[in-house]
Design a protein around this nucleic acid. Structure first.
Length: 287
DNA sequence: AAGAGGCCCTGATAGC
DNA sequence: TGCTATCAGGGCCTCT
């Protein structure tokens, strides 16, 4: 589910709520996530103070006072809930989930703090946690990933180097985290709409103007989505328990058979599967 | 080596 | 009502 903008919203919530707080106790109900929860998970977290909460791509990065790290990926359905002790049913500042109370099923991990607890819920269990014992371990793990769209490194020269002569279609490149980090299926569709590029276009056939558009609209779309509190599909909430609003601005995602929203374009939004992912595009203005 | 497809898993929804 | 099929925001692994 969550792409870079949604993870950014969660990060802001966590930063506000758990920074400088100490984890008193850990309860693990289910270790079987995308990867099995590491054996040193509890020992690394327990009685340690959270020094910082950061984000890279779709990863949340929690740094502890002894410079160890816990990295969280929410997969497709991972959500984080913060529940105050004094009102057990009310979730104040949850990240994402719309339920007015704690979800009943799939609460896999509880981090107990002094005045509240953090609950990791994940029905599909595609999410995962990783532990890194030093900054070097963490950066070694992350270095295989491409730059985020916001980084200076994501420029025309980089795109040319990576895409020249390639047969893979551009949409699959945008989803390829080794090429660019943080873009998922919704935003890949939206970015290509704004760039007027057909998602099925072979990357090697793009020109410099296409590169420029991809760079520009990757930044614009993600920034605007963050500003709107992310996308809310199936009842997800943002930091303050409000619905994310970006889904109201979708130009192509989920708009199969509807007319193109581009000014004066008479096209229709088509849907097709590409590498098993739903792909939406205008049949007229995306060439 | 690059690229396509399968698979991990549960839940919501549509169709019969 | 209850069954079956399809789909979902991700990413790793395998096969060609």
């Amino acid at each position: 589910m969550p792409e870079l903008p949604e993870v950014e919203i969660v990060k802001q919530s966590l930063y506000k709520n758990i920074k400088s707080k100490k984890i008193k106790k850990i309860i693990i109900k289910n270790r079987n996530l995308r990867f099995k929860l590491p054996n040193n998970f509890s020992s690394t977290l327990k009685n340690h103070k959270i020094n910082h909460v950061n984000r890279f791509s779709k990863y949340l990065i929690i740094r502890f006072n002894d410079n160890k790290y816990c990295l969280i990926h929410l997969g497709m359905s991972g959500t984080i809930h913060i529940v105050r002790n004094k009102d057990k049913n009310l979730i104040t500042n949850t990240s994402f989930y719309s339920s007015p109370s704690i979800p009943k099923k799939h609460n896999h991990i509880f981090l107990v703090f002094d005045k509240f607890k953090l609950i990791y819920n994940d029905p599909r269990r595609f999410g995962f946690f990783k532990i890194f014992l030093s900054n070097k371990e963490l950066s070694d793990y992350l270095k295989k990933y491409g730059p985020e769209p916001f980084e200076k490194k994501f420029n025309v020269k980089y795109l040319k180097k990576k895409l020249k002569g390639k047969k893979k279609n551009i949409k699959n490149y945008l989803l390829d985290q080794n090429f660019v980090s943080g873009i998922g299926n919704i935003y890949a569709n939206e970015i290509l709409f704004f760039s007027k590029i057909n998602p099925n276009k072979k990357s090697g056939r793009l020109n410099v103007n296409d590169y420029k558009n991809i760079i520009l609209f990757s930044k614009k779309v993600l920034k605007f989505a963050i500003k709107k509190g992310g996308s809310t599909i199936q009842n997800f909430l943002n930091t303050e328990g409000n619905l994310g609003l970006f889904q109201n601005y979708f130009k192509v995602y989920g708009r199969e058979n509807l007319r193109c929203l581009r000014y004066k374009c008479t096209g229709t939004i088509k849907k097709k599967k590409m590498s098993n992912r739903s792909t939406f595009y205008c049949n007229m203005c995306q060439k």
